[in-house]
Simulated assay, not measured.
Amino acid sequence: MSDQPTPGTALNPVARDTELSATTWELITDATPDSTRRAYRDDWKRFTSWCAQQDRAALPATAETIAEYAGHLALTRRAPSTIGRALAAITKAHETAGHGKPDRRGATEVLRGYRRRHAQAGRATRKAPALTITALRAMVATLDPDTLVGVRDRAVIVVGFAMGARRSEIAALDLTDVQPHDEGVQVTVRLSKTDKGGRGRLVALPYGSNVATCPVRALSEWRTTLAHHGRSDGPLFLRIDRHGRLGHVATGKGSPAGRITGETVAAIIRRAALRAGLDAAAAFTGHSLRRGFATAAYAAPDADLVRIARHGGWKEGSAALFGYIEEVDQWRKNPAAGIGL
C-alpha cells in the first residue's frame, strides 16, 4: 500500500500512522532469509489452524495459548527443535504485526520439560553426521564429470565443504561473488544466518592437494561450463531439470533466475552419499559439509580456532562450533588420559 494520498483527497493522519508502504514491507521481508521465511510461514499456518480449532485468538495470542500449543506439539511427538522454531515463528509474527514479543514463559517451561523427557527416554537429538575427507572423496568419485549435473554437484559439494558454508549460503552465491586470486579464489558471502546486518564476509579458498576435491578447480570447471551455456552473471549454482536443461524453471515454481535452493544442496549431498554407499548416508544433510569442515580443520596440525570461526562465519564463542571440535578433543585431549588410570 502506498503512503502517498490520492490526488485531490486529504490524507488521514491516523491511517498514515498505522499503515506501512509496499517498500517498507518489502524491506521487512528481505530482513529474513528465504528458507527461514518459508519455515516460519508454514509454522504460523499450523499455529493459526490449531487456534481456530481450539477457538483461541492467534494474534495477539495469550501466554496460555502459546503454552498450550507448545504442549500440543510435545504430545504429538514433534522434535524439540521443531517446537523451538514454532515459538520463534509466533514471536516473529507478533513483532511484525506490531504487537511486540508475546509472553512465551509458559511455553519455554513446557519445552524445557519436554527436552528433559526426551533425553530421559533416550531419544537423542538427531544430528547431521560430519562429512570426512575420505567420505568427501568417495562422494565426488561417484559423479560423472562429462555431465552438467556431475560438474555442478562436484562444485557444490567441494566448495561448500571448503567454505564450511551453510546450505543457504551455497545456494545464494552469484557468479560475481567468486573472484580469482593468485593463491586460489575469493568468495564473498553476502548474507548469512549470523550476519543480520548484511556486512558479508570474504572466504579465501586455496588450491587443494587432491585434484578431484580441489575447490578452485571445481569452481573453474563449473564456471567454464556455465560460460559455454551463455551464463556470465546471475546465480552461481543453477537448477538442472530431468531433461538436462540448465536454469529452467516451471511456471510459478522456484527462483525466476533458476537458482538452486538450500533443499537442493541437501539433496545433492544425500544423493552422492547414497551412491558412495556411505554408512548412515540417508542422514547426511547440507549441514554435514559445515560440520565436516569444522572437525577436519580443527584436527589439522596448527589448527587455529579463531580462523576456523571467521572462515565459516561462526559467531565468537559459538556453542555449535565448540560442539563440533569437542568431537575431536574428546579423544585427542581427553582429560582422563594420562592420569594413571
Rank of each mutant, 00 (worst) to 15 (best):
residue 1 M to G: 14
residue 2 S to H: 12
residue 10 A to V: 12
residue 11 L to R: 14
residue 17 D to G: 14
residue 18 T to L: 15
residue 19 E to W: 14
residue 22 A to M: 07
residue 22 A to V: 12
residue 25 W to A: 10
residue 27 L to F: 09
residue 29 T to Y: 13
residue 30 D to E: 15
residue 34 D to E: 15
residue 37 R to C: 00
residue 37 R to L: 13
residue 39 A to G: 07
residue 44 W to H: 09
residue 46 R to F: 08
residue 47 F to R: 11
residue 50 W to A: 15
residue 55 D to T: 10
residue 55 D to W: 01
residue 56 R to I: 01
residue 71 G to Y: 04
residue 74 A to V: 11
residue 78 R to T: 00
residue 79 A to G: 01
residue 83 I to L: 11
residue 88 A to V: 08
residue 96 T to Y: 01
residue 97 A to L: 10
residue 100 G to S: 10
residue 104 R to W: 00
residue 105 R to W: 06
residue 108 T to Q: 14
residue 109 E to V: 04
residue 115 R to F: 01
residue 119 A to I: 13
residue 121 A to S: 12
residue 127 K to S: 12
residue 129 P to Q: 05
residue 132 T to P: 05
residue 132 T to V: 09
residue 133 I to V: 15
residue 134 T to E: 15
residue 137 R to T: 11
residue 138 A to C: 02
residue 141 A to C: 04
residue 142 T to D: 05
residue 145 P to C: 10
residue 146 D to L: 09
residue 147 T to I: 02
residue 150 G to S: 08
residue 150 G to W: 01
residue 152 R to V: 07
residue 157 I to R: 08
residue 158 V to K: 04
residue 159 V to W: 01
residue 162 A to Y: 03
residue 163 M to L: 15
residue 164 G to R: 03
residue 165 A to E: 07
residue 167 R to I: 01
residue 170 I to C: 04
residue 170 I to S: 03
residue 170 I to A: 02
residue 172 A to H: 05
residue 173 L to Y: 04
residue 175 L to V: 15
residue 187 V to E: 04
residue 190 R to G: 13
residue 191 L to I: 13
residue 198 G to E: 11
residue 204 A to E: 04
residue 210 N to D: 15
residue 211 V to F: 07
residue 212 A to C: 03
residue 214 C to N: 07
residue 214 C to D: 14
residue 215 P to I: 11
residue 216 V to W: 11
residue 217 R to F: 03
residue 224 T to C: 02
residue 228 H to N: 12
residue 229 H to Q: 10
residue 232 S to Y: 14
residue 235 P to L: 03
residue 235 P to D: 07
residue 235 P to C: 02
residue 236 L to M: 06
residue 236 L to N: 06
residue 238 L to K: 04
residue 255 S to I: 00
residue 256 P to Q: 07
residue 258 G to V: 12
residue 258 G to C: 05
residue 258 G to D: 05
residue 259 R to M: 11
residue 259 R to L: 10
residue 266 A to V: 06
residue 267 A to H: 10
residue 267 A to Y: 04
residue 268 I to C: 10
residue 269 I to C: 07
residue 270 R to F: 02
residue 273 A to S: 11
residue 277 G to N: 11
residue 281 A to L: 09
residue 282 A to L: 03
residue 286 G to K: 07
residue 288 S to V: 09
residue 293 F to R: 03
residue 297 A to N: 06
residue 304 D to R: 12
residue 306 V to A: 10
residue 309 A to V: 09
residue 310 R to I: 05
residue 311 H to F: 09
residue 312 G to H: 10
residue 316 E to M: 01
residue 317 G to D: 05
residue 320 A to Q: 14
residue 321 L to D: 11
residue 322 F to E: 15
residue 323 G to I: 10
residue 324 Y to C: 01
residue 333 K to D: 14
residue 337 A to R: 13
residue 339 I to R: 13
residue 339 I to S: 00
residue 341 L to G: 14
